[in-house]
Write a protein that binds this DNA or RNA. Structure first.
Length: 595
RNA sequence: GGGGGCGUAGCUCAGUUGGUUAGAGUGACGGCCUGUCACGCCGUAGGUCGCGGGUUCGAGCCCCGUCGCUCCCGCCA
């Protein structure tokens, strides 16, 4: 007989009755009846009830065992009598009569119980991650993650993509997020950077003629965390294709994502196989962000012109962008509901507040209703598609973008509050036509608004002839830049790339990088483009976010095996940590305490 | 860097208007129990109420500061 097990804890059924078997696992639960001792033994595969009576020779040893001890139990499989069968367990028709107990490992009193599904504090869960991972929810999520990655690989390969690895130690690049730096021992004062994404490498792979690349790629960005943004590191399904238009990329990615979600949907509706296209501009207006949750039926309307009317005397909204967020049926909500929404906008969103109007059968009610005479109210109702019993909130700001963003948050808040969001569906869309540049008000200059390597949607000759005086034209330029969004989560960002060295130098010049500087910073890629570069493009869906959505979780930590906390610390491994003076000397590094 | 929430037993939480010795469940330990599967019953131990200061006759509760966790804003090509 094997030293540890003949079967797993999830394996035994009626047909095994009579066999002598050996199981190993953790004590999930112990029930002591004095005259009868039950031990539920758990491993990766399941749980099996084991039982021993006081006159059995194994009783004394079994009686010692406590939660989470690791035991090897040997005994005969017996059928449970009618009435003692547990129909909730796959192994519930049988149990093991314990004849021999071998203690492999003991456990101290647990800081985090494995049994049960209570919530525990995040820092405890992170410090004792190995215990949390034993619990059903995380164990299931992490296993799901593996299956999702496995199916993605299979789908990519079957579509003719080839997986390659790219360097982890590379060069820092300007633009984009803050880099993680690694000091060089051999080159004093110089640093490697961990890749924010294998962006340049995958483009070089296209220049190298490999045609269709993908990788489950680790990416590193030193930016502050969010629930859907892990601190430090995350994984992308990085992919790139040669000789493709934007539509070719869409056609390649849609079946992979839609198919993967469908495979694990478990009854949830994944929407159409071809994702609808929404322009960036439309998305900002109608949904108040560039990652709309299309499960939410609310649509924002621009109503600045209503408040600009001569017969409307509400000064606070004059000369401002005003966006209206409908709240269908909210007329039935108590006054406190409206106050709560308004208070939320003030405290959490830093807004001046949200005006609102409730539509009765005989006109509008609410703090600002009196400023709208009947014709203005009718115009508002028509624009927002309101009916009696509905309410409408207003987000107003002198800055259009601020008004739009507040409206977006409000749309989300109201959609959730009113229970309008169906959590049994996935709604995908492409956000297209992102602006190439944006105005940086703080530093009074033009910045790339997204990926600096994207191809502008503008004729080559005209683009090369742009100069500083064409600011309006430049800020109006769109790029072949697109995102995939699912249920309000940005899953993917991609572009048709700029493979023309002259256009690329010009693109950087517009964003304030001298030609010489661009030549140095992107020497490898620019140089490559001068030796025959195919038109190419791609995208990079976030693996962690895909798994999070499929698992129905709201936080990436629930689908990450060993996550860091919001302050980018690993509480289990104690990272980051101090290093020895010798290590620092070797790296030519001296630390300076913050002020 | 800024804002919101939380912090009481190993763990999950309650704790009224500021008022006697800070409670419950769970876990741990001991005892009883032959069919449980969140077993049940009895008992014992377990507390710097995150930390520091203040107000008060009196602070878990009020005020100020600080630390930790978390969510959000900034940031994230």
């Amino acid at each position: 007989m094997h030293a540890y097990r003949t079967h797993t804890c999830g394996e035994l059924r009626k047909e095994h009755v009579g066999r002598t078997v050996r199981l190993s696992g953790w004590v999930n639960r112990r029930r002591d009846h004095g005259g009868l001792l039950f031990i539920d033994l758990r491993d990766h595969y399941g749980i099996t009830q084991c039982v021993v009576e006081p006159d059995g020779k194994a009783f004394a040893a079994a009686d010692q065992a406590r939660s989470e001890w690791v035991l090897t139990l040997t005994g005969r499989v017996v059928a449970r009598t009618a009435g003692t069968v547990n129909e909730d367990m796959p192994t519930g028709e049988v149990e093991i009569r314990i004849e021999d107990v071998s203690v492999q490992s003991q456990a101290q009193e647990l800081p985090l119980p494995v049994f049960g599904d209570l919530d525990y504090p995040e820092d405890t869960r992170l410090k004792y991650r190995f215990l949390d991972l034993r619990r059903e929810r995380l164990h299931r999520n992490i296993t799901l993650r593996s299956r999702v990655i496995s199916t993605i690989r299979r789908r990519m390969i079957s579509q003719g993509f080839t997986e390659f690895q790219t360097p982890i130690l590379t060069a820092s690049s300007p633009e984009g997020a803050r880099d993680f730096l690694v000091p060089s021992r051999l080159h004093p004062g110089k640093f490697y950077a961990l890749p924010q994404a294998p962006q340049q490498f995958k483009q070089l792979i296209m220049v190298a003629g490999f045609d269709r690349y993908f990788q489950i790629a680790p990416c590193f960005r030193d930016e502050d965390a969010r629930a859907d943004r892990s601190p430090g590191e995350f994984y992308q399904l990085d992919l790139e294709m040669s000789f493709v238009t934007q539509d070719d990329v869409f056609a390649a990615v849609e079946p992979v994502l839609h198919g993967t979600f469908g495979e694990f949907a478990d009854g949830r509706d994944c929407g159409p196989a071809n994702f609808p296209h929404i322009t960036y501009q439309d998305s900002m207006l109608r949904y108040g962000n560039d990652k709309p949750d299309l499960r939410n039926p609310l649509v924002i309307a621009d109503v600045g012109d209503v408040f600009a009317r001569d017969d409307v005397a509400f000064k606070a909204f004059k000369d401002k962008t005003v966006r209206a967020i409908p709240a269908p049926g909210a007329g039935a909500q108590p006054r406190s509901w409206f106050d709560k929404i308004d208070g939320w906008a003030k405290s959490e969103m830093g807004a001046a507040g949200l005006g609102y109007i409730v539509l009765g059968d005989d006109g509008g009610k609410g703090p600002i209703a009196k400023f709208l005479p009947q014709p203005a109210l009718e115009a508002l109702v028509a624009k927002c598609g309101l009916k009696p019993g509905d309410a409408v909130f207003f987000s107003a700001d002198a800055k259009t973008e601020r008004a739009a963003i507040l409206a977006g948050h409000t749309r989300t808040r109201i959609g959730r509050d009113l229970g309008l969001i169906n959590d049994k569906e996935f709604r995908f869309c492409w956000i297209v036509d992102f602006p190439m540049y944006e105005w940086n008000e703080d530093e009074k200059r033009i910045d790339f608004s997204h990926n600096p390597f994207s191809m502008p949607q503008y004729a080559r000759e005209k683009f090369l002839n742009l100069d500083k005086g064409d600011k309006d034209t430049i800020l109006g330029l769109k790029a072949y830049q697109y995102d995939i969004v699912c249920n309000g989560i940005e899953l993917s960002s991609g572009a048709i790339r700029n493979h023309d060295p002259e256009v690329m130098l010009k693109a950087f010049e517009i964003a304030g990088y001298a030609r010489e500087e661009t030549e140095v910073k992107f020497a490898g890629m620019l140089n490559a483009f001068r030796y025959g570069a195919p038109p190419h493009g791609g995208t990079a869906p976030g693996i962690d976010r895909i798994v999070m959505l499929i698992a129905g979780e709201e936080n990436l930590r629930e689908v990450t095996m060993f996550p860091m906390n919001q302050q980018a610390q690993d509480l289990m491994m104690n990272a980051p940590s101090e290093v020895s003076a010798k290590q620092l000397r070797e790296l030519h590094i001296r630390t300076v305490a913050p002020e």
